[in-house]
Amino acid sequence: MTRSTRFFEIIQMLRRASAPMTAAQMAETLEVTKRTIYRDIASLQASGLPIDGEAGVGYILRAGYDLPPIMLDEEEREAIVVGLALLGRTGDQALEKAAVRASAKIADAAAATPGLPETFRVSEWNQIPAGALSPADARRYIREETELQITYRDEAGRCTDRCIHPIALIYYIDVVVLVAWCVLRDGLRHFRLDRVQAVKPTYGAFHTSGEALRRIWQSEDPSP
């Protein structure tokens, strides 16, 4: 999460809070340290944001401050909220937490209570097994274009060491698949995350080529 994104999240939490929020509460939600929250609050206060409070007591956002509303019609809101709820099927806990935050923002904009409308129910059931590479880490490596060294177990149980350039994730109901350029095979391959036995970033030469590899992948398999 970038610093500017944290600032926005902190503002949103303080806007929704009915009582002072402590740095510990915000740090747990954003998965950062309390020291990071203290620095962020100080920066926001220095920029003129009306935040009152202090370390150990809690913080509030003074009345009168607001953000521009999100203009969504009813069906647009329902589509987004149902889609966010479906993330529970992916087994990606980081995305699920992000979905909760996003749902709260949509609810704020619509002046409604967070969560699904009463007319909807979305099952969060999944049977996706875990591997050495989590979906959250895989997404981060894709964003950062980080080369990886992995140990991969195939369907027959054979293990091989691979150097890969991750470019995309495919979420199925029972498995998450990583699309990557495999240096060993000199081509694009699909790797089930639950079969990744070990992973280590190598930070090799991969930057700026992710988008080109994604275009190749889409041209070869436009409907994965």
Rank of each mutant, 00 (worst) to 15 (best):
Y65F: 15
L67Q: 13
I60G: 03
T36P: 03
S47D: 15
R35E: 15
I80L: 15
L44E: 08
G56H: 02
Y38C: 07
R39Y: 10
G56P: 00
Y65D: 05
Y38A: 11
S43V: 12
L67W: 08
E76M: 15
S47N: 10
A79W: 10
I80T: 05
E74S: 14
Q45M: 09
P50C: 02
D52P: 02
L61C: 04
R62Y: 05
K34W: 02
R77N: 07
A42H: 03
A79E: 07
L72R: 05
P50Y: 01
I51R: 04
D73M: 08
Y65N: 04
S47A: 15
I37Q: 01
G58M: 03
P69L: 01
P50E: 02
G64R: 04
Q45G: 09
L61R: 00
T33C: 08
D40R: 00
V81T: 14
I37G: 02
G48P: 11
G64K: 05
E76C: 11
M71R: 14
E54D: 13
E76S: 15
I41T: 01
A55D: 14
I70A: 13
L49M: 10
R77D: 08
Y59I: 02
I60K: 10
I60S: 13
K34P: 11
R77K: 12
M71T: 10
E75Q: 14
E78D: 15
I70P: 10
G64N: 06
P50H: 01
D73L: 10
T36A: 15
D66G: 11
Y59P: 05
G56V: 00
P69R: 04
E74G: 04
P69F: 04
D66H: 14
G53S: 03
D73A: 08
G64T: 04
L67S: 10
P68Y: 08
T33Q: 12
A79R: 13
V57W: 03
I37F: 02
Y38W: 06
G48T: 10
D52I: 13
M71E: 13
Y65G: 05
I80K: 09
I80P: 07
E54I: 06
L67F: 06
